[in-house]
Computed example of a mutant assay.
Amino acid sequence: MARRGDPERHSPSGTLRALDRTVRGARPRPAHLTESEWQSLRQEAGELEYSWQETYQALIEAAHAEPTLRALYPFTSHWALRFSTTTRPRLTVVGPCLTANSDGTYGVGKGIVSDDLGRFPTASEAVALAVRQMTAYRRPIALGG
């Protein structure tokens, strides 16, 4: 089974359930897929058995608490939180990348393992910067493919 940070992982269980409805004739709603992906991320963050679990979970929860980010489709790559204006399988990546660092800080960057936009002591500060970077992406999520 591929982990969330694994590039071969294409779909969480919630997305698979939504896609299963497509097979039966009902078309998945992008908002439902987005909500399902957020719930999957939050659950996984709470169940991790890594030393940086609390930092990572704080980042996921802070991002989820922010309406601007919660409205975007979330996904992770190499444990970095990213956002898209489309659902899987064809993601349209927008805005910065958020990371929970092993030293307890939070990074915001243009790339996956970068904090070139800032490094912060709290998840809420990192999320606030990400939100300021997202002003151009406030539109409904579309199906990605």
Score class of each variant (00 low, 15 high):
38 W>C: 05
14 G>D: 09
24 R>Y: 06
35 E>P: 01
45 A>N: 08
142 A>G: 04
144 G>T: 13
121 P>N: 10
112 I>N: 11
108 V>D: 00
139 R>H: 14
107 G>W: 03
37 E>I: 05
71 A>V: 05
92 T>Y: 11
29 R>W: 00
27 R>H: 10
36 S>D: 03
77 S>A: 07
71 A>L: 05
49 E>I: 12
76 T>L: 06
56 Y>W: 09
139 R>S: 11
67 P>I: 14
8 E>I: 09
80 A>D: 07
47 E>R: 15
92 T>W: 10
101 N>H: 13
139 R>K: 15
100 A>Q: 03
101 N>Y: 06
11 S>F: 04
125 E>W: 00
13 S>P: 02
29 R>C: 01
53 Q>N: 14
37 E>H: 09
117 L>Y: 12
136 A>D: 14
118 G>A: 11
144 G>C: 13
92 T>D: 15
92 T>K: 13
142 A>M: 08
2 A>R: 11
95 G>L: 00
136 A>C: 06
45 A>R: 01
9 R>L: 09
103 D>E: 08
59 L>E: 03
80 A>N: 14
86 T>Q: 15
120 F>H: 04
38 W>P: 01
91 L>Y: 14
77 S>I: 01
88 R>H: 12
37 E>Y: 05
88 R>V: 12
102 S>R: 11
82 R>V: 04
144 G>K: 09
114 S>Q: 10
15 T>I: 15
78 H>Y: 15
73 Y>S: 07
145 G>N: 14
117 L>V: 15
101 N>F: 08
80 A>E: 08
60 I>W: 05
68 T>W: 00
133 Q>K: 10
62 A>H: 02
104 G>A: 06
69 L>Q: 01
51 S>T: 13
128 A>E: 12
13 S>N: 08
33 L>Q: 06
98 L>A: 02
56 Y>T: 00
43 Q>C: 12
100 A>Y: 02
137 Y>N: 03
14 G>Q: 09
84 S>I: 09
40 S>D: 11
83 F>M: 10
127 V>R: 00
49 E>L: 14
39 Q>D: 12
51 S>N: 10
42 R>G: 04
59 L>N: 01
128 A>M: 10
51 S>G: 12
85 T>H: 01
141 I>P: 02
91 L>Q: 06
141 I>M: 06
97 C>T: 15
122 T>W: 02
51 S>I: 11
78 H>Q: 14
50 Y>T: 13
43 Q>I: 14
95 G>W: 05
123 A>I: 05
105 T>W: 03
46 G>H: 07
73 Y>P: 02
57 Q>N: 14
29 R>N: 06
23 V>W: 12
119 R>K: 12
48 L>H: 07
20 D>H: 13
98 L>C: 03
112 I>G: 07
141 I>V: 15
92 T>H: 14
73 Y>K: 08
85 T>K: 01
42 R>F: 08
62 A>D: 02
143 L>T: 11
132 R>S: 08
40 S>P: 02
51 S>A: 15
58 A>R: 07
123 A>G: 05
20 D>T: 11
83 F>E: 04
117 L>E: 10
145 G>I: 11
